[in-house]
Simulated assay, not measured.
Amino acid sequence: MTTTQSRLLGPAEVRSLAAELGLRPTKRLGQNFVHDPNTVRRIVKAAGLDGDDVVVEVGPGLGSLTLGLLPVVRAVHAVEIDPVLAGRLPRTAAERAPAFADRLTVTTADALAVRAGDLPEPAPTALVANLPYNVAVPVVLHLLAELPGLRRGLVMVQSEVAERLAAAPGSRAYGVPSAKLAWFATARRAGPVPRAVFWPVPNVDSGLLAFERREPPPGDREAVFRLIDAAFAQRRKALRAGLAGWAGSPAAAEAALREAGIDPMARAETLSVEDFARLAATRPH
């Protein structure tokens, strides 16, 4: 693979592009643009990509991360909800990474509504993105469900979200996001990201989350996810009481829990996704 690199965006280039587009970053769309080339290089390296990978990038914005990805992968499918940003991105790639611009395709869409058929071939193998923080969890879960070819990913999210997504059963941060992500993948925190690398500077800390797809436990995903939602809606209660609504009564919940080999007095945060799958299988869908 050629060693030619893109010309990455620094603070001056990011502000110049934003001014050209009349862009005022909005909190609604979670727009905080990375303007530090070293951070981009770090993310690309940490993602562990190779020349056969096809990356789906959600929320490419002005193209900071896109320019870092293009030289090292087979293709980048960028999904951008803002039509102005989506319209400018191919030209940015042509100007700053001319040797690789043909590897980029841009889809103007809400990532939460994207279906596999909306993206061109080849199918994505990795998710690498600076995700809008207000939709980070549902975007990751949606894309893992919708794109079976996604084998791994590295996403930048709010630090607390990274902690929740990577949390193990029994830990304080473990909850619905961690249990659902565990259905699809193993996850780990991959380091902090300083606030100063963004424009505008966010008022929250950021972190990297890495994940690798794994085989899910046996069972029906939708049934398991409904059970996870029900269990954590009453997370302070023992499961015998907390799952009374799901099972029909506390006694029925206790019977299902015992059948699944789970202590009826346990709490939701102690159960692994395998436990939830086993428990869900005791109830008719």
Rank of each mutant, 00 (worst) to 15 (best):
D220C: 08
S171D: 15
L165W: 12
R172Q: 14
R188D: 15
V176R: 09
V224M: 12
A210F: 13
P194R: 03
V176H: 07
F232R: 02
F211K: 12
V193E: 12
G191L: 04
S159H: 13
A230G: 03
P202R: 01
V204G: 00
V193F: 05
A247F: 03
P192Q: 04
G170Y: 08
D229Y: 06
V201Y: 01
G248H: 08
A196S: 07
P192L: 01
P200H: 03
R189Y: 14
E212D: 14
F232K: 02
L227P: 09
W246N: 01
K237D: 13
S171N: 10
W246T: 03
L243S: 10
A162C: 15
Q234I: 09
G219T: 07
R188I: 09
G219R: 03
S249H: 07
W199S: 03
A179G: 00
A162D: 15
V201M: 02
R214Q: 15
T186G: 11
D220T: 11
N203D: 10
P216A: 01
A210L: 12
R240E: 14
G242L: 03
L181K: 00
G248C: 05
G245C: 09
T186Q: 11
R226A: 12
V204H: 00
A247T: 14
A168K: 12
I228S: 02
A185G: 05
L208T: 12
R240S: 09
S159Q: 14
S178E: 03
D220N: 12
A168R: 13
P192Y: 05
R240H: 09
F225E: 15
A185I: 11
V204D: 01
P177T: 04
F198C: 06
A210N: 11
V157A: 02
V201D: 05
A179S: 00
E212H: 10
R213F: 11
V224Y: 10
A241Y: 02
F225K: 07
A223R: 14
R188V: 15
R195P: 10
A230N: 07
G219N: 06
G170T: 09
Y174T: 08
F198Y: 08
G248D: 14
